[in-house]
Amino acid sequence: MSYINIGIIIIIAFIISVVLTKLEIPILRAKAGQNIREDGPQSHLSKAGTPSMGGIAIIISAVAATLIAGLVWGGSVSDMLVILFVFLGFGFIGFFDDYLKVIKKNNLGLRAYQKFGLQIVISVALAVFLANYSQGSTNVYIPIADVYVDFGIWYIPFIVFVVLAMTNAVNLTDGLDGLASGVTALVTLFFSVGGLTYGIASGTYFCAAVCGGCLGFLVFNKNPAKIFMGDTGSLALGGGLAAAAIVMKMELLLPIVGLIYVIEALSVVLQVGYFKLTKGKRIFKMAPIHHHFEKCGFKEVHVVIAFWIFTVICCVIGLGII
């Protein structure tokens, strides 16, 4: 396994993603137009009707490239299947939610308890499997200290928290043209390099494939976006990224290299909590925080580029740690 392998996987996923996204745009435009929040930035109202559910292309391209890499270069089959199970499982939840909202025109989509409940089921299944059948069992790697710590009975709730937090954080980040796809391409590229450094083939293949899939999708998702990934893409990306990081024992690097995800999620938590405590007051002009910057007068494309640059810095810090 080498950087050449990573490059080949990225290129394969990129090509598949570009082709599939181009093909799905006219199909989804006719059936899956995006609804836009009326209380959001006024500039977003023009995006109404933009096809959503484009994450289907990312999912197919990532799965295809991962399987091709596994067949050609080998690797742990069980690790690969576990990661893809979580990736596809969360993608299915997002797809069903999008299907209800944008095709069936049910604005509520899945109920919160249904959506969260399904996420918990998949997260617990992953945690239980890894605790009982993975090579590292309940050990968690502490990067800076360079030691493994056995979490014992706390391993399962810890893993469930990591998966749920990352999945919903990526979902919240998906609010501007090219934001989630660009940030995730950078983060998965980091984990590809990290997986290569630690010699973990399956996780490396998957992260490189997701990177390529996101870059291919970004061709059409950059401002002005011709298509959105929807919950189909964002939930799959969050779940798959978390699963890959956990399998590679790099889960504690997620909040470092994926700090944008953390900030986006925290901005929502703080906004909602402060709003309830103060009976109507707000910390930010709008949450998630990318909308706050828009409300402050920054152009959407400038916010996205700034978040990309910030993520590059976080990934460089992550490389320094590993």
Rank of each mutant, 00 (worst) to 15 (best):
S52M: 05
V63I: 10
N221T: 09
A242F: 00
A209C: 06
G195H: 11
V72G: 06
H292Y: 12
L23S: 14
L118W: 15
V262F: 02
G49V: 06
F220E: 01
P157N: 09
T311F: 07
V163W: 00
D97I: 04
L319R: 07
Y274E: 03
A57V: 07
T21P: 07
G280D: 03
I227A: 09
S46Q: 12
G33T: 10
T188I: 09
M53V: 03
G70L: 15
T173G: 04
P41N: 06
L259V: 07
I6R: 02
W154T: 11
L235A: 01
I153L: 15
G280A: 05
G212Q: 06
I6G: 08
A243Q: 02
T311E: 06
I153T: 13
Y155P: 00
S123L: 08
I142T: 06
F90Y: 15
Y274L: 07
A13W: 02
A65M: 15
K47W: 05
S2E: 13
I142L: 15
G318Q: 09
L71M: 13
D39I: 11
G54C: 11
G7E: 01
K22I: 02
I9S: 07
Y205N: 14
G152Q: 08
V187Q: 11
C296S: 13
C315D: 15
Y133I: 08
L254R: 03
I159W: 01
A127W: 00
L110A: 11
I56R: 03
T167E: 01
I305W: 13
H44M: 11
C207G: 08
L110T: 04
F206R: 09
A165Q: 07
K105E: 14
D97C: 10
A180I: 01
K276H: 13
T184N: 15
P157L: 02
T66R: 10
V128A: 08
L270D: 05
Y141V: 05
I68A: 14
I260C: 03
V163A: 02
A48L: 12
L270G: 09
N168F: 03
G273R: 03
E38T: 11
